[in-house]
Design a protein around this nucleic acid. Structure first.
Lengths: 352, 352
DNA sequence: ATGAAAGCGCTAACAT
DNA sequence: ATGTTAGCGCTTTCAT
């Protein structure tokens, strides 16, 4: 706990440099249209006084905050079950930093926090919001879009159906469906015929999209070969046992993410099934600590999570630039960035 | 991207309610000293207009921000190698939320970002800072303490030696040394005599403290039984091979964290050593996804990471309250919270 | 108990 | 090119 000294103001700097406040302001904000000798004098005064602009005062007049909110609604497990968000945050942080914007993190534990988030966003503290909309039925995203804050979503929100031309909702997502297709096609290419799927929680679009991808390839898949998981190791274990019970002769499994694949792997090992000889396994995510360290290492679908974060931030900032600095109302589709779906790549390791 | 409507001001609410701005302000800030009928009228006007206070304007006069910066300096790996920070953030977020404070996340990729962080903190955007000081030689913490912002550190900073009475630096840490002692004593209690230690990176106080704890019990430990790791699975593997090469007859290993323990486990399995029969293994952290899912499940030292985060925030906020709302200068040791070291507990599972 | 008025520190017209 | 000035929206004395 150190002391809070009262900071020098523009006024003080102006006095010291023997110029007006306006001139100091100009210098501080880039020095356009100020002659060199004056710039010099002001810089010196700023330096000597240790002047730092008061952001509150500045925001009050500019109505800009150089801050972006990141909203993560996750009642429980997942935030720390996998490093997904940490990576995404990293990407976001890098991009925001490059644009001198700050990252305000809004974590919610449940619906009781939503009002607070809505209030904050509506309160005009930030220039925009990056929102992770995980569950189909979650009211938060809608609430946020209602708050009148420019927003980019991480992952396709439930109401955006992925068809082109949906200009009102901007999101960044991986090509979950295409990635799943690649994974399943890989298994087919290996000569596997009884291919099972452990899904994610089907109230999340990523899980639904991966299931759709699975179905794209296995057009008339035996319904017994599809079991709902929940993106956790325990869920993967449970699902694997279920599958084996239903259909002992299966020869491949596509798990909707790496951690559930690791659970499946554990069950297969326990039951003496060799991987990949008896059962080939493919995951999704390429979460390194999981995929690379599992036994055997996991063949999986890689998505560049950090890049997704970076892109979300970039899209938001670009949209912010486009709108007139002060003018309310958006610029229409012309200036509005549209959603981006990033490609995935299959990473071959030992499990399939 | 939704449109940004221009928000109603205090003035507008006052007009609508037929009162002065001052009265509206009083109602909005708790309604002390305003008679019921008026309070009612104002509340109604606020509701109808959807008024939300402009925080910039408020901060400009109150000099409070109701925001706290969380600074995480982590060039690379660790932030996403384990869920440590996610948990800590969660704890911090919960506590801040309860006090209506916002969390501003400052991530740094390297020393080139330090100036930016320093500037931000010095700029008076936040009421205080929560700083994770991971490396002994990191200049960031000092820089921050110099910025004149009330700060609480996560993990003992290198310069704080842990002796009582160091009132200038406030930190929250686990009892790394005590926890390590418990772990090693447990192994001794199991009858193990050739106990090895895989340390963490010794430029971090947590790793040093755990090593000290190990030495407290193994007073004259064979130096060959101590190998430096780096808190990663790969480091754990490397260290385990090294140990086995140096001293094949070892019968126990205390790894400085769970992920390096999991690496060690993998090597032991690969080399046909049974755990715990041939070699007992104890980790540190009780990182559930790792400790519980490893094979065999890991006996480890649990620290309540989320609680650490919560406590950091609580300490900071308490310190903030103590100082006069506006008055510069701190209140001296009397009002200054002091550091807290949280106890750890040994969790017995199958590995030792 | 309520209102009037004075700024908080800054930017952005507008004047010079 | 530089200075002057009028607010941005709010809280907070100080009157009433």
């Amino acid at each position: 706990m150190t002391e809070t000294a009262s900071r020098p103001t523009l006024e003080a700097v102006a006095a010291r440099a023997g110029v007006s406040r306006a001139t100091v302001s100009r210098v501080v904000n880039g020095g356009e249209g100020v002659r060199e000798p004056l710039v010099e004098r002001v810089r010196k005064a700023v330096e000597e006084l240790g002047y730092v602009p008061n952001q509150a005062a500045r925001s009050l007049v500019t109505r800009r905050h150089d801050a972006v909110a990141v909203v993560i609604a996750e009642p429980e497990t997942r935030v720390f079950a996998d490093p997904f968000f940490a990576l995404q945050l990293r990407g976001i942080s890098k991009e925001l930093t490059a644009h001198d914007s700050q990252l305000v993190l809004l974590l919610t534990e449940g619906p009781e926090d939503y009002a607070r988030v809505g209030r904050y966003l509506a309160g005009g503290h930030v220039d925009g919001a990056l929102v992770f909309s995980l569950h189909l039925d979650d009211p938060l995203p809608a609430l946020i879009q209602g708050a009148g804050v420019p927003t980019v979503f991480g992952g396709r929100p439930g109401w955006a159906d992925g068809t082109r031309g949906d200009a009102t909702t901007v999101y960044v997502d991986s090509d979950n469906r295409g990635g799943a297709r690649d994974a399943v096609r890989h298994l087919v290419g290996l000569g596997r015929t009884r291919i099972a799927h452990i899904t994610g929680p089907l109230d999340q679009t990523s899980a639904v999209d991966r299931l759709d991808g699975f179905r794209d390839v296995m057009v008339d898949a035996d319904p017994r070969l599809i079991v709902e998981g929940d993106f956790t190791p325990a869920g993967g274990e449970r699902a694997m046992r279920e599958l084996l019970g239903r259909c002992p002769e299966l020869d491949a499994v596509f798990a909707a993410n790496d951690v559930s694949a690791s659970g499946a792997l554990r069950v297969l090992r326990e039951l003496g099934r060799r991987v990949p000889e008896d059962v080939a396994v493919v995951g999704f995510d390429d979460m390194l600590p999981v995929a690379e360290q599992s036994d055997p290492p996991l063949t999986t679908v890689r998505q560049d999570i950090e890049e997704m974060g970076r892109l979300m931030a970039r899209l938001l900032l670009r949209g912010l630039e486009r709108r007139a600095p002060d003018e309310p109302g958006d610029q229409g589709p012309a200036g509005t960035p549209s959603s981006v779906v990033l490609p995935t790549t299959l990473v071959r390791r030992a499990s399939a």
